[in-house]
Design a protein around this nucleic acid. Structure first.
Lengths: 163, 163
DNA sequence: TGTAGTTATATATCAAGTTATGGAATTGGC
DNA sequence: GCCAATTCCATAACTTGATATATAACTACA
């Protein structure tokens, strides 16, 4: 069965990038489930941003993540529910709400940095290893490799070796 | 402001690909608006698939687009509302519903192939021109180029030159 | 100082993907 | 030939992005 998105090349590059990105995120989610982590993989960037940059107001958080502000507002309420981040009103500007990692959030990030992220990163690196040539060609290789061995299988293998 | 997704490299490749893909699609949408095309850019792949492969049942359409079947079912109902595709029951298997371009749909695809797609493709190609090196590096260049001159501006420029 | 404009965030709605599940049609084995 | 299993599609609920808009707080200036 012909892969139309791939055949259309540059015309559908946007759809194609989205499709690959979604697959990577879904596979990452499986890795997390296997490791009993209870958050969505899509929340990691926000937590990592707070870890790297310290407490930030909503708007700057959105900017540093490259997403629109309402998305951050929603993620922050969700993570607040989960007790992973805390929000406090800024003193000097009552409009700003400063988001920071809670103690639990910091703990989760610390353990993720130690146990989870390296595995995911290694698996993604493996998928992207030794790529060269045009962007479309590289994407095709990535798609083929992911189809042959999905990310979560690669992460598990790495884990088995590590034992 | 540090771009966290970019800083995190392979760890957040999924988020990053999604983000770039969404930007490309949003920019493409602007090109379409400017050309008075009334559909979403995300519907083009489905129409293109029917144009290239002929009438297809829902499942095969989903496969050739690389998306899940419910997404296709929804797109098909939307495009049916718009009068761009038609659905008919298969004779030999009453479960299958064969999707095909309507006359209007075929007309839209034909004019898109002539007037719209070449411009979009050229603009995307321009964004991806002369890339080399690692995937992450190429993505960074694409992001920088899109930030400097968004896709729809590139398409307009090409259009102006064409006159 | 009052007011007009701007900024920061929240809320509502939409888009397009996903998974899970159910019903109808078909297929296959006994 | 019937019943179980499978296949095809639709529907529901959820996720995560977007834009548009409302509201509250701040700023600037006449």
């Amino acid at each position: 069965m012909e892969d139309i998105i791939r055949s259309l090349g540059y015309l559908c590059l946007g759809s194609r990038l989205k499709r690959i990105g979604e697959q990577l995120q879904a596979d990452t989610q499986r890795v997390l489930e296997r490791l009993d982590v209870r958050i969505q993989s899509s929340q990691y960037p926000l937590l990592a941003a707070l870890d790297r940059l310290g407490p930030l107001p909503v708007g700057e958080l959105a900017q540093s993540l490259g997403v629109a502000q309402p998305g951050v507002t929603r993620s922050v309420s969700l993570l607040t529910e989960l007790g992973l981040v805390e929000v406090m009103q800024s003193n000097d500007d009552q409009r700003r709400r400063i988001v920071s990692l809670s103690q639990n959030g910091q703990r989760l990030v610390d353990s993720a940095k130690r146990d989870v992220w390296p595995r995911i990163e290694a698996a993604v690196k493996e998928v992207c290893a030794d790529l060269s040539g045009s962007l479309l060609g590289q994407l095709a290789v990535i798609e083929d490799r992911l189809a042959a061995t999905p990310l979560h299988r690669r992460a598990e293998k790495a884990e088995a070796v590590a034992r």
